[in-house]
Computed example of a mutant assay.
Amino acid sequence: MANDNARDVDRVWDLMKKIGFAMLVTRDGDKLRARPMSAYLDRDANTIFFLTDARRHKDEEIARNPSINLSFADAGSQKYVSLTGTAAVSNDRAKIKQLFTTPAKAWWDSAEDPNIRVLKITPDDAEFWDSPGTVISYVKMAAAAVTNTRPDIGENRKVSM
Rank of each mutant, 00 (worst) to 15 (best):
N115H: 09
R157I: 01
A126N: 09
K105P: 09
T147F: 11
D53G: 08
A143F: 09
M161F: 15
P151R: 00
A142N: 08
I48L: 05
A106W: 06
S38L: 04
Q78R: 03
N148Q: 10
K140R: 15
M161I: 07
K31N: 13
M141P: 05
K97S: 15
I136M: 04
A75L: 12
N5M: 15
A6T: 14
D113T: 10
T134W: 09
D44N: 09
N3D: 15
K105E: 14
R35Q: 09
G29M: 04
V25E: 01
D4H: 07
P123D: 05
R7C: 02
R150W: 09
P66E: 01
D10P: 08
K140H: 10
D152H: 11
I121W: 00
R93E: 06
K105D: 01
L119I: 07
E155S: 14
K140F: 11
I153Q: 00
S137Y: 03
A126H: 10
N91C: 10
H57M: 08
I68Q: 04
D124N: 13
A6P: 01
G133R: 04
D124P: 01
D113G: 01
K140Q: 13
E60S: 14
L51G: 02
D74V: 04
N69H: 05
L51Q: 02
N65H: 12
D152K: 12
Y80P: 11
S90N: 06
M1S: 12
W129E: 03
L15R: 01
D53L: 07
S110T: 15
D92C: 05
R33P: 03
V135F: 13
R150N: 15
D42C: 06
A88T: 13
R56W: 02
P123V: 07
A126L: 08
